[in-house]
Design a protein around this nucleic acid. Structure first.
Length: 209
DNA sequence: AACTACACCAACCGCGATGCT
DNA sequence: GAGCATCGCGGTTGGTGTAGT
């Protein structure tokens, strides 16, 4: 593994954002030699990167079949359903979304969907508090009102994960303008890049041999 | 206009799984 | 079967852009 940099070569391993030049080198090399054996690939291509870093860059960004840009509502729905089924198995989920990477789906989940679930959770807690308050008032004002507790339990069972997911999925099916779990389906400018992959690939072709 | 808070995403890290010798 | 190298996955972090004050 590349956990323990120990020799002089590893000392000059580059980290951080990839430059356009590095991207082109990697694209060129893979176009000519194919992918795989990432450590030797990194060395052979003359990149001062770990094989791991090269692999990640290629899989998540440079691959020609990587789809950039907004997650569509259909994809979002699929992500939610598959996540409800499999949990955080991002690579498994990604296999069912052609062109999407596990990293992209993971980021999308954490930044968008998880946020909505948290909010829904908080809304649930507010509802519980309100119900408890009402119950307390009811019980102090009338002794015979024994159905109040039952009502609360049936209406406000704890929000299990699947409840939350179903809630969001239902909201989706009802349309974007409904209710509290309005989803940000149409984020703009998300797919703006400094240079597009099409540009890169055309450059690569121009460079190519 | 300047500052702050937040959202998003690319990249890194650690670790388990797998393959090779 | 043991030891090592590599791969792949999931969690986390840091940088950057943008909206809000």
């Amino acid at each position: 593994m590349d956990k323990k940099p120990c020799n002089s070569q590893d000392a000059e391993v580059r980290k951080g954002p990839w430059t356009m030049e590095e991207d082109l080198i990697l694209i060129n090399y893979i176009a000519n030699h194919g992918e795989g054996v990432w450590n030797s690939l990194a060395k052979a291509a003359g990149l001062k990167r770990t094989g791991k870093s090269c692999r990640l860059r290629w899989l998540n960004y440079l691959r020609p079949d990587v789809r950039r840009g907004n997650i569509t509502p259909e994809e979002q729905l699929l992500i939610m359903e598959l996540h409800a089924k499999w949990g955080n198995r991002w690579s498994k989920i990604a296999k069912h979304l052609p062109g999407r990477t596990d990293n992209e789906i993971k980021n999308y989940w954490r930044t968008r969907i998880q946020k909505h679930i948290k909010q829904a959770d908080q809304n649930f807690q507010v509802g519980v508090d309100a119900m408890e308050m009402m119950n307390h008032q009811a019980s102090t004002s009338q002794v015979s009102g024994s159905t109040a507790d039952n009502t609360m339990e049936t209406c406000y069972s704890p929000p299990s994960y699947h409840h939350q997911i179903n809630h969001v999925v239902e909201a989706f099916h009802q349309g974007p303008n409904t209710n509290t779990t309005t989803l940000h389906l149409h984020d703009s400018n998300v797919n703006d890049n400094y240079w597009s992959m099409e540009d890169l690939w055309s450059m690569q072709l121009l460079n190519g041999d």
